[in-house]
Amino acid sequence: MEPFVRLKAVAAPYELANVDTDRIIPARFLRYARSAEYASYLFRDVRFASDGTPRAEFFLNRPEYAGARILVAAENFGCGSSREGAVWALAESGFRAWIAPSFGEIFHENTFKNGLLPVTLPAERAARIRALLAAKPGAELTIDLSAQTIALPDGSVEVFEIDAFRKECLLNGWDDIDLTLKHEAAIAAYESRQRNETPWLAGSMIQTRNGGRSS
């Protein structure tokens, strides 16, 4: 994966709370394998009218946000389903980082898994950034992951917290499957314990094939 170190880019503010993943990508697109097409699914039903014309009032349709790569959202952004398509639709549209007071947990995890950065800030600080950006559409933010800072258009700097494990993965662009496989001994030890202590969990799925009650 491409490492995430520093990002200087136009940031788009989105005022709505509880933006769910159905809004980010409607379920009818999930049947398709990931491709560049995912960019066209982003916020599809709120961004475009049913005949495909862009809705002028939708924030991402403003020309100033055409090159935006950072999204600054409100509470509980990405709540709802586990669909990773929500992250893919944002990523294929050029976004690499999102800032909000809180995130849907699975969406938050999916973000890291794609080498992208979710930044959690207290509500009033996230709101201040949205207000600054709204006052100056097209303004840029600079996110420095090693320093855990965001430089704002008014010259001030926000500091953010991030899980040390995820930070390391992002900075190095690590695929954590490789990282995990270094723990093979611990995995194997659990599996042998499972066979001894809870043998019904070791292999029972393919042994028993018939039967079943429904109520």
């Binding site: 990773e84 699975i106 995990t180």
Partner: peptide, 20 residues
């Protein structure tokens, strides 16, 4: 608990997940 597609692939390969 529910997980996204990349985490599913991680579980497929390792039978584990990094969690907090």
């Amino acid at each position: 608990f529910g997980i996204g597609a990349s985490e599913v692939a991680h579980v497929m390969a390792t039978q584990t997940l990094w969690a907090r």
